[in-house]
Design a protein around this nucleic acid. Structure first.
Lengths: 340, 340
DNA sequence: TTGTACGCGTTATCAC
DNA sequence: GTGATAACGCGTACAA
């Protein structure tokens, strides 16, 4: 019993009026007589008429869809951002199409091309690590040159004309490092990833700036660069076995948690012997033992703002070529892995 | 410098041929002469012509979009499912539109209605808790009656004609409980949520069945029902303070982790004094201290299969009214919170 | 007050 | 070989 989706045409035929009469009647146009309107509206309601989104999109050249391209979705931060985007977009009647680049340049390109062919009104995205590594943003440029609005968040570039929203990663690292210095820590390690990731770079700078501002030496032996998000156990152990450290700042939760575990295993106490602070205030930080002092990135807020910026651009008539970069301030969430 | 998206019409005008000639030429039709084809193809390539998805959707009545409606996205399990869906969908040229019900019945309804008006070819969804509580599935029925394929996963109902994919939650709980019994545990607690959630119910049944099969008494005092995902600290403490327990099976990670923390705080050892097993093998289980023995739900696999089932339905000509329910087997991941 | 015609971008059928 | 026409579903300017 397939209740085929009903169209204006069906209603028109059934009620023996023209399609445009139906269309107008359903929009409560003054042009149409009360009688006809009531008849048509009643019929439409009875058969649960709803206009076809696709037809409207084609007509209006507006899809009411936002394309979101992120490197990974099994990742707390990105997930909170998506939630924020979805939340705001929904209030404005927009849907969210999520594509995953899986940290791959090619997938990022393919996804954007698919969506750019009319499926979406604008993009919100965070660059894949490979894209940042290759430093190639032609796919973004092509999109913006077509007049499709783009908002980059978190992992961004300034080589493209678009809006941006980031947290002040440098400040976050600075705050955290400062906190450790204030605790009296002298050998503050930084666990980070390779520098082509924009955020890692900024965080490293914040760390170094805090040390310099407090007349502390920057010791490259205290900086551990992991080559990927995946743990390389050996590298890790070698580092902690051979380096004297009394505090650790990590650019992500996993490194921090793994570090804490290894440190505890070695019989040291947290935070008495070593303090830990990690970026990204996710579930792991909250439920770690001891709970991890963390730098919150306010992903949901970021998502909402990104969506707001995008929709504002999408719906603004004048395509003025002004782009803004918003910078959110991170927050230090103090927990038990540092001394308060 | 807005490079407006180019259409068939533009090409036709520029090259002084008809639109249909252009269309055919670009599809390499035999009808068109070599010369014309080459000329048109070259031009199209130069101006980077790509057909407009919306127009094609309207014509074909196929959007190549899949609507995914889930209760929450900041949730490891759902997130892995989405990844699986996205992965498979992508290989078939489909995009994924994600909508969040936020555990709300109304939002679920609204989202589905939005998408059902032509935006998608089919739905993959997991019910919101409120929907399961109200036990009202008319919005699902409306969709399926319109001939839109639907695949439910994890939180499902059998009151709707559709495909389903779930893990055998009862078996998962059974396996876990059996494991605890085999360890010699006598007072096995179950921490669960209210029973209207289909999965909680099944898990509770598995727990009880395992006890019965092993001639152990079912003691309702050992079953703690939390009213929501949010921790109610007091309930929790009261339970552990007043109930003698030597093992805990939890329907989610958070309850398990929190339980372990409180138990350790009370000076008991895990797993020597108390064993813990938790559902959903997420990050928390892996990185907990001690790491948590968990029942893996294979979300990514589930997502892939759901997408495969859906796309198969979407693309099959005959709308035979046969629906299948696939049941995945859970896996027990043994870690340090149980004795191996 | 109602209906006709056109356009959104594409494809398919049929005529020339 | 090429082009005109209709159709997908809708909205709207214009004609009746």
């Amino acid at each position: 019993m397939l209740k085929q989706k009903i169209t204006l045409k069906h209603i028109a035929k059934e009620l023996e009026v023209s399609i445009s009469t139906v269309s107008k009647a359903l929009k409560n146009s003054e042009e149409i007589s009360r009688d006809t309107k009531e008849k048509i509206q009643a019929f439409a309601k009875l058969y649960n008429y709803k206009p076809n989104n696709i037809a409207i999109s084609l007509k209006n050249k507006r899809t009411k869809n936002i394309g979101v391209v992120i490197p990974d979705i099994v990742h707390h931060f990105f997930t909170t951002v998506v939630r924020g985007i979805e939340k705001f977009a929904n209030t404005k009647g927009y849907n969210v199409i999520v594509c995953l680049s899986d940290e791959s340049f090619d997938k990022e390109v393919i996804n954007m091309e698919m969506l750019a062919n009319g499926s979406i009104d604008g993009f919100i995205m965070s660059l894949s690590s490979e894209t940042q590594y290759k430093d190639d943003y032609n796919h973004l440029k092509e999109v913006t040159e077509q007049g499709i609005p783009l908002v980059l968040f978190d992992r961004v570039t300034n080589q493209v004309d678009c809006d941006r929203i980031i947290i002040d990663d440098q400040m976050g690292a600075y705050m955290a490092t400062k906190k450790l210095i204030d605790e009296g820590r002298k050998k503050i390690a930084l666990i980070t990833t390779k520098n082509y990731l924009s955020v890692s770079k900024a965080r490293t700078e914040g760390y170094m700036k805090a040390l310099r501002d407090n007349n502390m030496e920057i010791n490259s032996e205290l900086i551990l660069k992991m080559s990927s998000m995946n743990m390389e156990e050996e590298l890790f152990k070698t580092f902690f076995d051979n380096t004297e450290v009394d505090a650790v700042l990590s650019v992500n939760e996993i490194f921090a948690i793994s570090g804490m575990r290894y440190i505890k295993q070695k019989g040291k106490r947290i935070p008495e012997d070593i303090s830990f602070i990690g970026f990204t205030d996710g579930l792991l930080s909250k439920y770690a033992n001891p709970s991890l002092t963390a730098i919150a990135q306010h992903g949901e807020k970021m998502g909402e703002m990104a969506a707001e910026m995008l929709i504002q651009k999408v719906e603004s008539e004048n395509d003025e070529e002004t782009y803004k970069t918003k910078i959110l301030e991170p927050t230090l969430i103090e927990r038990d892995s540092t001394i308060n």
